[in-house]
């Protein structure tokens, strides 16, 4: 389909990552920091492999993903509904937008202490952190998406006889979908931050818990390994799931030129 600049870049990107690993290996070889604090790429990979074959890795990833699935679904539902109200009422928008923008300035990890106080070491507390981390992003993106709907769609809907009660589901939400998807994408990333942060302090399974364990055991290889894994996982979902969906919707809504 498209000619090769994409492919050429892909090669360069690969070289960049290989160089990065080589640099890491070189730094390790210089022995500036003792190797139990600064392991080599190979040691990290080996530790990840061990964790995997000990049956520690997969259940942890599953646990974190499951928490995200539940927590983020709730957050997205509430966020969509709140965003819809904000998009349709100027007063609601004025009140809630500043509040949500304020909440967004809070680092996601800052929700962990209050969650610990409110819910103790329960699973609900982790959901709470995920929801509070991602809710504002979804709500703001939804309301912004609604406010950016081309007026022509609304006029067309009205002249076609759409009754008021049918407008939100038939026209407003679908027309705002490009903005909503952007919000879902951002919300997921923030929720992911929140999930791992919460697991750091109040869990017995999950990626965050493995990070915590690594620190407790002075196992730098495990800490770095889980960090790399968390990054890869997030990147994978962002690039290959959300970005694809976003691209398709933008193309369909005529917001990109067709290839």
């Amino acid at each position: 389909m498209r000619p090769s600049p994409e492919k050429k870049y892909r090669g360069i990107v690969l070289v960049f990552y290989l160089a990065l690993i080589a640099l890491w290996q070189t730094l390790f070889s210089l022995q500036l920091i003792p190797d139990y604090l600064f392991p080599s790429p190979l040691q990290v990979a080996r530790r990840l492999w061990e964790l995997g074959s000990d049956g520690m890795l997969w259940p942890s990833m599953q646990a974190t993903l499951l928490r995200m699935a539940v927590g983020f679904s709730i957050a997205a539902g509430i966020g969509l509904l709140t965003g819809l109200l904000m998009g349709m009422s100027r007063i609601v928008n004025r009140c809630l937008k500043s509040l949500f923008l304020g909440l967004q300035t809070l680092p996601t990890a800052a929700w962990a202490p209050i969650s610990l106080l409110l819910f103790g070491l329960s699973e609900r507390g982790i959901y709470f952190v995920i929801i509070m981390s991602s809710l504002a992003a979804v709500a703001i993106a939804t309301s912004d998406g609604i406010l950016q709907i081309p007026p022509l769609y609304l006029r067309a809907a009205r002249t076609l006889g759409t009754p008021g009660y049918a407008m939100p589901l038939r026209v407003i939400l679908p027309a705002a979908l490009p903005g909503i998807v952007t919000g879902i994408k951002l919300g997921w990333t923030l929720g992911w931050h929140g999930a791992v942060s919460a697991e750091l302090i109040k869990s017995s399974v999950g990626l965050g818990y493995l990070l915590y364990m690594g620190r407790e055991l002075n196992d730098a290889a495990q800490v770095l390994g889980i960090m790399v894994l968390t990054i890869l996982f997030g990147l994978l979902l962002d690039r290959f799931l959300f970005a694809q969906i976003e691209h398709r919707i933008r193309r369909r809504w005529g917001l990109l030129q067709a290839a």
Binding site: L152, Y153, R155, A156, R158, T159, L160, G161, V171, P174, A175, L177, R252, W253, G254
Partner: peptide, 19 residues
């Protein structure tokens, strides 16, 4: 009094719903 499908308007741009 209000817009309705008995006086339907065809716009300059097609205004089709992309979804």
């Amino acid at each position: 009094t209000e817009p309705g499908s008995d006086r339907l308007m065809l716009f300059q741009e097609h205004a089709l719903f992309p979804w």
